[in-house]
């Protein structure tokens, strides 16, 4: 994976987020304050605008720049979390010019760990972590097993999807949905949804790239 992949991934995520606008927005309206889509879109736009600058950087530095930019762009609860994710990935990849799948999976795990720490949250609290933690774990396992890209991406997507859907039956203990108590039951967490959308976008980009 190189910086060009990162830039392409960002573009893919942006397109996927935009394509899921109505759904993401309705989720945060239902159990949040309705701004999650807008926050994430603002973040995507800022990063896409940075493409020329990013292309010049090694992956580690690119991730750090992305993190810093998101930190001052998104705001809300998702801003510091997503920013911490990228900054931590950047730190983890320091000195690695072309991270392989295992190194990338390792960095991603560090990013997810940073979200856990910053948000003082873990699985089962009805947040983005319900998608990110198991998906990241699976990625590490599949990478260690040396799974091929095609089947790795397929399994990762299944994992993300299942865990995103599982937030529907959770009572939130973190984030705004927590204020709703039992009323949040039956609604998917917006952050879990964007995480799943992002995972799908990156996987699809990687496998399409492989196919072409």
């Amino acid at each position: 994976m190189n910086t060009q992949d990162i830039v392409s991934a960002v573009e893919a995520v942006q397109a996927a987020i935009l394509a899921n606008e109505a759904h993401i927005e309705s989720l945060d309206r239902a159990i949040g304050d309705g701004d999650h889509f807008i926050n994430v879109r603002r973040g995507c736009e800022a990063i896409v605008a940075m493409r020329p600058e990013l292309s010049q950087l090694p992956p580690a530095a690119a991730f750090e720049r992305i993190g810093m930019k998101l930190l001052s762009t998104i705001g809300g609860a998702s801003g510091p979390l997503i920013a911490s994710f990228f900054m931590s990935m950047g730190r983890e990849l320091a000195g690695i010019e072309q991270p392989d799948t295992r190194e990338f999976a390792q960095a991603l795990a560090a990013g997810v760990e940073a979200i856990k720490k910053r948000g003082k949250a873990d699985v089962g609290e009805k947040t983005m972590l319900d998608v990110l933690i198991p998906t990241s774990r699976l990625l590490q396992r599949l990478a260690a097993e040396g799974a091929d890209r095609e089947s790795l991406c397929m399994k990762i997507k299944q994992e993300a999807e299942a865990n995103m859907l599982a937030t529907r039956d959770m009572i939130a203990t973190k984030g705004r949905a927590h204020f709703l108590g039992e009323r949040a039951l039956g609604h998917i967490d917006p952050g879990a949804k964007t995480s799943q959308v992002a995972v799908f976008a990156v996987c699809d980009m990687l496998t399409e790239g492989a196919a072409s």
Binding site: D33, G34, I38, L71, S72, G75, G76, A77, G79
Partner: peptide, 12 residues
């Protein structure tokens, strides 16, 4: 001041 209903960011 952050965006509407969105917390401001650390740089502010």
């Amino acid at each position: 001041p952050g965006q509407v209903f969105t917390s401001p960011t650390p740089d502010q």
